[in-house]
Nucleic acid binder design. Structure first.
Lengths: 122, 122
DNA sequence: CGCGTTCGATTACATGTGTAAACGAAAAAT
DNA sequence: ATTTTTCGTTTACACATGTAATCGAACGCG
């Protein structure tokens, strides 16, 4: 299941809170600058590809995600790792550790995270 | 400059060694299962979007990247961080540290990388 | 009980992408 | 020199994507 850029914006809204009616989703995306028609198209496409589902409440639909965010994140990250980092997550990690300007505090947090992982693997 | 999936395969070949003729690039991509025509189309599109350049050597062209891999990697990673991790690289790092099954050795390497960064920020 | 409003569905259309064949010219082979 | 091979260029075509207007039906207001 591949979710395009514009579609992802819609998914984020639903992952954050659901179910929502189309009107509510359109409202939540007001700052993006799309017309209502555009959002509806995206809802339609997402429905067709099975990324979201809905229950009809009278005339209106109430939409909700049909796939968890986790799964989608796993897919896009995996695709990036495969495409750019030779399938090696460590390679991506190295890239980010080296190329990102992390504050001392963030570095501290990161080190703690790594240590936690070490703890989990005796 | 956005480089599509198929195009990226071609770029990788050229980033690894250049300049190369179309024939050499096609050969390098033999295992992908594309016909020569497909690779030529991709070379054409990449040329048009300025991602690669070429010098004509008689009839044949010798292609080479016009944009460094680094720049493209920066772009795609940035786009992922923005799209999925709220623009926070640390958030992506956390996700990968937690969700990837790293071996004790890899964890060790990773910790060392973090410590190196700490050293660089006195 | 009509009529405008509101929904979702359908249609639109330009551009990007995957994948490839056809074409015309030049180079290589015979 | 003529044929064949080889290049790059042009054309092809289906599906994805961004962005939106239109349409038919149902709902609520007056």
């Amino acid at each position: 299941m591949q979710i395009a850029d514009a579609e992802w914006r819609v998914m984020e809204v639903l992952w954050q809170s659901s179910p929502l009616t189309a009107a509510e989703i359109i409202a939540a995306l007001a700052d993006v600058g799309w017309t209502a028609a555009t959002v509806k198209t995206l809802l339609h496409r997402l429905t067709k590809k099975g990324a979201i589902g809905f229950e009809a409440e009278g005339k209106r639909y109430s939409y909700r995600p049909a796939v968890p965010r986790k799964a989608c994140v796993r897919e896009v990250t995996r695709s990036l790792v495969d495409r750019v980092f030779g399938g090696e997550p460590l390679s991506l990690l190295e890239y980010f550790v080296k190329s990102t300007k992390l504050s001392p505090d963030e570095l501290q947090q990161l080190k703690r995270l790594v240590e936690e992982q070490e703890g989990k693997r005796p």
